[in-house]
Amino acid sequence: MIQTIPGLSSALLLAAAVVCGLLALAVVIRRMVRTEFSRREELRRSRVRPLVLDILDGDTSFDLSRRDLAALVLLASETAGYVRGDDRSALTSWLTTQQFARTCLKKMKSPFALTRARALSRFAPMAHLAPRSIEQMLNDRDEGVRSLAAQSVGLSGSAALTPPLLRSIEGPRAIPARIVSMAVLRASPTSIAVFGDTLVDPNHRVRALAIDLAGQLNLVDGRKAIEDGLDSASSEVRAASLRSIQRLGSPLSVAALERMPLNNTPEFWSAQALVRELLVG
């Protein structure tokens, strides 16, 4: 027979009842506290919302309480993610005066992934202020944060960050190629110069991705670099070059295609078909 401690069962049942009661109470209290907090927060945001328009107009001479100012900073950072050009510049300039960028950058070094992710998300519209910090986040230890950093680069459209973004598809802390591609397309660079030296990167995957994206973005000034990919030893790069040449659709690429060595590879036959397509139109 197993010896049981006298009174143990009653104590355990009582403890379970107490825990259940506390859980039920926590549910109710959580609901009540949230309702009240949301109501106050909504009131505060309604109060400061018109001031966002004042910031956009360059009028920042308002005097607010500490909590109202915090609400306005949050609202302005959210709005900055949805606007472009002068409006974004006006908001980010004001946010910089409020030490918002500094706070975000500090939180981006937090040991907690969630804190880093939230700070990064808020800092995204101001990425051009600290591209090095965003670049470091592309190599973050948390894969979710890394993906978010790639999306931030796309959102910010920062040209300086495009090469490290493209290179982030390789390495032990790689970002999925699809996320990187989506970010580059979101940034929509208008010149091949933004791709830096990734079009001649020694890593075949990086080079193939850069060439592919140059074609998808229809970067006509990148035609020469794209055509150079046809001479690569990697079939992945050659295939990417062919796809991009086809997308650009320039008859000027015919010469490069005809230079391809005669062999029985799939790329060679694709190139021949492409030559006909470009010549016939």
Partner: peptide, 8 residues
């Protein structure tokens, strides 16, 4: 007591 432990 044993039954209550099972119930718990």
């Amino acid at each position: 007591q044993l039954f209550m432990l099972a119930f718990f």
